[in-house]
Design a protein around this nucleic acid. Structure first.
Lengths: 200, 200
DNA sequence: CTAAAAATAGGTCAATTGTCCTAGAGTGAC
DNA sequence: GTCACTCTAGGACAATTGACCTATTTTTAG
């Protein structure tokens, strides 16, 4: 019981530190200090740094799965669910300004390190992609569902990237509105199907 | 002369390594080995690691300025110039798949490190932004020029981020086409002005 | 040619890294 | 109580890090 708690504390602290500082720049000492345990105890729970990374990725994956499942159960309207996703940019604005998107930045870092867990990290991005595809399918996007999902996902990632660079609150609000608008309009303007619906 | 050459070799090697491995994961030894010089010689040219970083950022900045200036001189059509910018995603696809966008990833990393040169790195992103604003102004976007510029910039950043995660060549080609389409159409679909022009 | 300056080499330094190891303390079953 | 097992603490390790230093060698200036 206690051990499970300590283990979870380590994972939580590592999750936060990996997000704020990056995986490579976070040392065992950083995590141990954050949890107030000895390095020896640390190695009882995780034998290598990669093991902690994998545990953190699994936690993030499971956290996001819970989040998406909550939205699925909360609203019967796929457009509203997509809106929840996009509005993360606003809800987590402060952290995004400082540390970027947790998923995007980890994906980038591990890809650069050519780290073995890089593919694991990509699964989180894949989770978002697949969930968005499902939402757009329910929205009646048919064969365009995947393209639209990827568009929303990449758009969000881009906004997060620029948010971190410029820290422009108005920009984030404006872009979120534009994404929601695009979703609501069936997105004819992107050159994706439904040209007849081009509104305004 | 010789020294200038060595110094430039160091900057070039550091530029490449910072891109491929990240700033934090690149050591003096890595760069020295890449240039085949001793660490002692290294410290003759750069007293600290931050000094190399600043030199690399200056080089990147100046490289991008040259690139943009070339496009300015090459074509009288702003839309065509913007297209050059967007098509970097295709031209540099291989490297983007592996290392992401050089500008975006450095911006992210330095922001996370809360590094003193973070603001310097952001200047490169700012260079792109300002250049794009100018192009859209010439294109007659008026007061919307900035919003459209930021849209193209964030869109590109997002595509680069997803390209790195999924390595989907078709996705990149498709998104580039969509961006060019959006630029060519005056981008009414994003909710940015000129609604009357919304074609197809 | 010669003296000053620029450039290069390589050793040394303390600090930090990830990892391993052993010695206890705590806990539960019987 | 005792025994086995889980958990915790902290020392030791080699390797690597950024940084400093003192000698050489090479180049340049007069």
């Amino acid at each position: 019981m206690k051990s499970s708690s300590t283990r979870q504390q380590i994972i939580d602290a590592a999750d936060e530190l990996f997000y704020a500082q990056g995986f490579g720049e976070t040392s065992f000492a950083d995590i141990a200090k954050s949890v107030s345990i000895s390095r020896g105890n640390f190695y009882y729970h995780f034998k290598t740094k990669d093991e902690i990374l994998d545990a953190v990725i699994e936690k993030r994956l499971s956290d996001r799965e819970d989040m998406l499942r909550n939205w699925d159960e909360m609203s019967g309207n796929p457009a509203e669910r997509i809106a929840c996703f996009v509005r993360i940019l606003i809800v987590n604005q402060t952290k995004i300004f400082a540390y970027g998107c947790p998923v995007g930045t980890l994906t980038m870092e591990l890809a650069k390190l050519e780290h073995a867990s890089s593919g694991n990290a990509n699964r989180i991005m894949g989770l978002f992609r697949d969930w968005l595809i499902r939402q757009f399918s329910e929205l009646g996007s048919g064969a365009d569902a995947e393209a639209r999902a990827l568009h929303v996902l990449s758009w969000s990632q881009g906004v997060a990237a620029l948010a971190q660079a410029f820290r422009d609150e108005a920009f984030v609000l404006r872009e979120v509105d534009k994404i929601l608008d695009w979703v609501g309009r069936g997105a004819p303007s992107s050159g994706l199907g439904q040209p007849g619906l081009a509104g305004i």
